[in-house]
Design a protein around this nucleic acid. Structure first.
Lengths: 343, 343
DNA sequence: TTGAAAGCGCTAACAT
DNA sequence: ATGTTAGCGCTTTCAA
């Protein structure tokens, strides 16, 4: 009783007294079958609890499997969860299913996952590339018709479709917002590692906003953190500088949590904050948190749409789709007008 | 150039001038192969970019596929994201990969997903069951050795392992905390639909805490909401009651967001709140939000461990694993001591 | 140490 | 309207 074989097409055929092919025809609604046979087959299928073996089918049909391989840094990060949900929504009626794994931003783990997905002959491969990962090994697959899409960051060594946020423009807008409200010493707390694409782009936006306003760029105000605790520590350090910043720009949602937590702990409501990426309860904070919101749903949708178009024969050259961010001013970027700094 | 066939074992064999079986042996390190052949084979594999077709392999070997099918209500919900991440961590060195899909709490979508997963011959099936879904169709698979685990809620029509939070005890503790701080009119805002297991359990905990304290249970204080906006509206309605509650108990994280948002909007810091499930920034709110924290990592770990044990031959009877919750008192459940209600 | 043949569960291509 | 044969890419079984 333990591990009895699952019934096969042949079992169903034997039960009814027809050939395997007839059962196949009925189940796939391919070709003709008499009403009587159809009924009998369906009855036998139900009786035996038969479920066609999709792997066997795929092998015979020869096409790719009806799965999408998706590699993200962290399954628990709500941003990537939202992206994944949106991809699923977009591909559901094509019958595609998500095969997911997390890389922890480790190139080796990323490679292991993509190799596994390729061995499964996924229909589409989507990757949030890790820093240091090389993707030239995917060239042949792409050439053979496998749609490959990079999400959130461009990949290295392979020219293919990618979908990213408007990191630079978004960060620029956020910092410009702070400048417009009188801030002149604005610190940047970015992602780690510093080579991360998103960090570099957002930092570039920060710098361009300062430059545009004719403000000096103080290297001691450009910092990094890779988790919430780290961001809190950096915040503390920045505020104890001889000439502390009057405003902080958070390079991502995790950093934002660390900043906000630290400011609350030290009761510093006089420090302005703008964060890249929205966080829950932002509007409830005091002051409410101003953010440069990303659009994970649209990122997922765009990535899926691009991949499906490739699957449908789109042979145009690789595109980079930039999904706009949106500045949501809630207060924390305005209050208070900083006192004039003394030199 | 577009869709040229991926190389097969036979292609590699032809390239080297050996039989397919020899190549297979080298790649699977099964049986003997001369150093020379091994080298040649490996070289040809690299040259052709050969990757064994896992589906074909599985079909021949006959065993289940190295995937875990996981059905959750919503890929974007961080709670389920954390559970999924924890499952992945636990099964990674067994070489298992996650096949994921969201049901939107719709029994039909849930069934479609589980059927698909079964057709793929997943090694393990894990489901967060939707209200109204029946799982008796899984009996045969379970009997045939497929580990099935229900997560967050028990399933219907099938006795199998399940992993849930200590919903009843947790809710009891949260409400008792409010009572201990002087509250006597405490409202419950639960999940929807009202048949949802988690809502029923948490409501039972709420009721038992009231009973234990000799407090009357006022039906007008037991309410529901199924999204953040709904929870805000319910909060508004409760506070405009002739005899409004002095404290609110949130039945889940989404409801908590709605309550907190509405209280902030109406500047009602006099209302105490305890929420089931933790939310980011809870400690930064004013007052900081007291919660009954769940442990999604442990839920995922326990679910995966139970399933792996079954895979390894554990034939003991179905267990329900209850993962403890933890009351984290941060302030919102204490302040202020309510004024004595006037009859 | 290697190979040939058979077969996993299914369907394409041709029968009939 | 149904059946037969062959074969997808791989591994098992047996032989050499």
């Amino acid at each position: 009783m333990a591990a009895n074989r699952r019934p096969t097409l042949a079992d169903v055929a034997r039960e009814v007294g027809v050939s395997a092919k007839t059962v196949s025809r009925v189940l796939n609604e391919d070709g003709y079958a008499s009403a009587r046979t159809r009924e009998q087959v369906l009855a036998a299928v139900a009786k035996l609890g038969f479920q066609p073996n999709l792997m066997a089918r795929n092998i015979r049909v020869g096409g790719p499997d009806t799965t999408i391989g998706l590699v993200v840094p962290d399954l628990g990060n709500p941003f990537f969860g939202a992206v994944a949900g949106s991809i699923e929504d977009t591909v559901r009626d094509r019958g595609l299913t998500l095969l997911m794994g997390s890389s922890a931003d480790d190139p080796d783990r990323e490679r292991a996952l993509t190799d596994k997905f390729l061995a499964r002959r996924v229909s589409i491969l989507m990757v949030v590339p890790s820093v240091g990962a090389d993707h030239s090994h995917l060239k042949a697959h792409r050439a053979a018709g496998l749609p490959v899409v990079f999400i959130d960051r461009p990949g290295a060594g392979l020219s293919t479709d990618s979908v990213v946020s408007s990191n630079r423009a978004g960060a620029h807008d956020g910092v410009a917002h702070l400048i417009a409200h009188g801030h002149r010493r604005i610190a940047f707390i970015g992602d780690l590692p510093t080579k991360l694409y998103t960090r570099r782009e957002r930092l570039a936006g920060y710098r361009s906003a300062l430059q545009e306003a004719g403000l000096p760029s103080d290297r001691s105000l450009v910092t990094n953190a890779h988790d919430q605790q780290g961001a809190s520590a950096v915040t503390r350090r920045l505020l104890s500088l001889p000439e502390p910043p009057t405003a902080l720009f958070a390079g991502n949602n995790i950093v934002a949590l660390g900043i906000v937590t630290e400011l609350a702990r030290s009761a510093r409501k006089d420090i302005a904050v703008v964060a890249f990426d929205d966080v829950p309860l932002a509007e409830v904070l005091e002051p409410a948190l101003t953010v440069v919101a990303q659009n994970p749903e649209e990122i997922g949708r765009a990535a899926a749409a691009a991949a499906l178009a490739r699957l449908d024969g789109d042979r145009s050259r690789a595109r980079t789709i930039t999904v706009p961010t949106r500045l949501i001013a809630r207060g924390s970027g305005e209050s208070p007008a900083p006192a004039r700094q003394e030199a």
